[in-house]
Computed example of a mutant assay.
Amino acid sequence: MKTGRKGGAPDPGTPWDEIAPGLWMGGHHWADAAGQRRPVVVGAEFDLVVSLFSAAGHGPAPGVPHRIVPVPDGPLDAGQLAAVQEAARAVAAAVGSGRTVLVRCRSGYNRSGLVVAQALVELGAGAAEAVRRVRAGRSPWALHNGLFVEYLDVGLDVARLLVSLEALDSS
């Protein structure tokens, strides 16, 4: 299987996976059974698509609500953490009202995992349970960015405060 990202993480074996009823997680590429890298193009399969990374030609179809929330797969600043929280709340609200939601990033492991896990927290799961469900539903590679797991463990509100304080110290 080809690796799709730095650090040796393989491309996922599916375009997207259901993590909880109505809550799906995916990326922009996947590897088919022969190990060939394929683009993921979203049509109208979902009621809402949230993209933490976006690329032209990957959908969704016209008319499908699409929230683009660009965040890096690395340390996040307070504004980026707030954007993750806002996206997770929107995802949780949509799923809670019976809508189907796809949260995606480049590979469908870290950034999408952070938002999906936080949405699960918003829906009542504990952080450790949310991380477990993301990894069980998507891949053991999901949330391999340990910093994102730390954000979830301390809570995104606390993480935002700590990041803000660090920014003040360095200025």
Rank of each mutant, 00 (worst) to 15 (best):
residue 1 M to Y: 06
residue 3 T to P: 02
residue 3 T to W: 09
residue 6 K to S: 12
residue 7 G to H: 10
residue 8 G to W: 06
residue 9 A to P: 05
residue 9 A to C: 09
residue 10 P to L: 08
residue 13 G to I: 02
residue 14 T to P: 00
residue 15 P to S: 08
residue 15 P to W: 01
residue 17 D to V: 09
residue 22 G to W: 01
residue 23 L to D: 03
residue 24 W to H: 14
residue 25 M to V: 11
residue 27 G to K: 04
residue 35 G to P: 03
residue 35 G to R: 03
residue 38 R to Q: 15
residue 39 P to N: 09
residue 39 P to A: 11
residue 40 V to G: 01
residue 44 A to Q: 06
residue 44 A to S: 15
residue 45 E to D: 13
residue 46 F to D: 01
residue 47 D to V: 00
residue 48 L to W: 11
residue 49 V to N: 03
residue 51 S to D: 11
residue 51 S to P: 06
residue 52 L to T: 02
residue 52 L to Q: 02
residue 54 S to F: 07
residue 55 A to L: 14
residue 55 A to S: 10
residue 59 G to F: 02
residue 60 P to Y: 00
residue 60 P to V: 00
residue 61 A to H: 01
residue 61 A to K: 01
residue 62 P to H: 06
residue 64 V to W: 00
residue 64 V to I: 11
residue 64 V to N: 00
residue 67 R to V: 13
residue 69 V to M: 03
residue 70 P to D: 06
residue 70 P to M: 06
residue 72 P to H: 08
residue 72 P to D: 08
residue 73 D to F: 08
residue 73 D to R: 08
residue 78 A to D: 12
residue 79 G to A: 10
residue 79 G to V: 05
residue 83 A to S: 14
residue 84 V to I: 13
residue 85 Q to M: 14
residue 85 Q to V: 14
residue 87 A to L: 07
residue 88 A to V: 10
residue 89 R to E: 13
residue 91 V to G: 01
residue 91 V to Y: 02
residue 92 A to F: 01
residue 94 A to L: 03
residue 96 G to A: 04
residue 97 S to L: 07
residue 98 G to L: 10
residue 98 G to M: 09
residue 99 R to C: 01
residue 99 R to T: 01
residue 101 V to L: 01
residue 103 V to W: 03
residue 103 V to L: 06
residue 104 R to A: 12
residue 107 S to G: 15
residue 108 G to N: 06
residue 109 Y to F: 15
residue 109 Y to S: 11
residue 110 N to T: 08
residue 111 R to C: 11
residue 113 G to E: 00
residue 114 L to E: 05
residue 118 Q to S: 12
residue 123 L to R: 15
residue 126 G to F: 06
residue 127 A to W: 13
residue 127 A to Q: 14
residue 130 A to L: 07
residue 130 A to C: 09
residue 133 R to I: 02
residue 133 R to S: 12
residue 135 R to P: 04
residue 136 A to E: 15
residue 137 G to D: 04
residue 137 G to W: 05
residue 138 R to K: 15
residue 140 P to H: 09
residue 141 W to S: 14
residue 142 A to M: 12
residue 144 H to P: 07
residue 145 N to W: 10
residue 145 N to Y: 13
residue 148 F to R: 06
residue 150 E to M: 13
residue 152 L to N: 03
residue 153 D to F: 13
residue 154 V to P: 04
residue 155 G to S: 10
residue 156 L to V: 11
residue 158 V to A: 15
residue 159 A to K: 12
residue 160 R to G: 09
residue 162 L to K: 08
residue 163 V to T: 14
residue 163 V to N: 02
residue 164 S to Y: 03
residue 166 E to W: 11
residue 167 A to I: 02
residue 168 L to T: 05
residue 171 S to W: 07
